[in-house]
């Protein structure tokens, strides 16, 4: 084995003569090309997530029909307060995200770079879960308000309370599952290699 490694070391040093040397002009062109970095993708997708999650909220709030319904059940003002809180939370999350994103540095150690990327990514994940929780809560409230204010549904509700609870719960669980699967796929593909390599490094350094 040592023989093989010695031979390899010898060849390794000689191999420098075998690579086609790129000129300064060729290198100039290269450094200005588009990056194919995972960090770029994470940034783009994270920004999209922040925009979409808050954007949907915004659209719903200013829908006239929704406004009227909410006024009827005296929830419209509550919604406004909740929205303000949400925007404050959004700003906080974006600040944390930005702060962590800035620590991502290609000159760091291999382990540190992976850690910083995963940490940054986790912040957006927490923000997504926060929003899912809000969606679950507000849709439950909305469904039951709707039911109580609708005479036909209300009648149904009084007779089949358990069924209605189960159906609502079931729908929410299914929505969560669909979202979770989609999310896992997206980030599973993007971060699979990173997670595997990070796991490998942690295995080595278990001391």
């Amino acid at each position: 084995m040592m023989e093989d490694l010695d031979l390899l070391k010898k060849d390794w040093k000689r191999s420098e003569n075998t690579f086609r040397q790129l000129s300064e002009f060729e290198l100039y062109k290269m450094i200005h090309k588009k990056s194919s970095s995972i960090v770029k993708w994470i940034l783009v997708i994270s920004i999209l997530e922040f925009i979409i999650l808050r954007g949907l909220d915004f659209l719903i709030l200013f829908d006239d029909e929704y406004q009227n319904k909410m006024n009827v059940v005296h929830l419209y003002n509550f919604e406004i307060i909740l929205t303000v809180i949400n925007y404050i939370v959004l700003i906080l999350f974006i600040s944390f995200f930005y702060k962590n994103f800035k620590t991502i540095n290609a000159s760091s150690s291999v382990k540190r770079l992976m850690k910083d990327i995963l940490k940054t990514r986790r912040i957006v994940k927490y923000y997504v879960w926060y929003n899912l929780f809000l969606v679950a809560v507000s849709s439950t409230v909305a469904v039951f308000s709707e039911v109580k204010n609708n005479s036909i549904l209300n009648a149904f509700y009084s007779k089949h309370e358990t069924t209605l609870y189960l159906i609502s719960f079931g729908i929410i669980v299914i929505l969560f599952l669909v979202f979770w699967v989609f999310y896992k796929l997206l980030y599973g593909i993007l971060l699979r290699k990173l997670n595997e390599n990070y796991f490998e490094l942690k295995k080595i350094d278990v001391a």
Partner: peptide
């Protein structure tokens, strides 16, 4: 030294 570290990080983590 700095270059090979960035290059390793690119090969292992950054490059998609």
């Amino acid at each position: 030294t700095w270059a090979y570290r960035v290059a390793l990080n690119t090969a292992i983590t950054l490059y998609r």
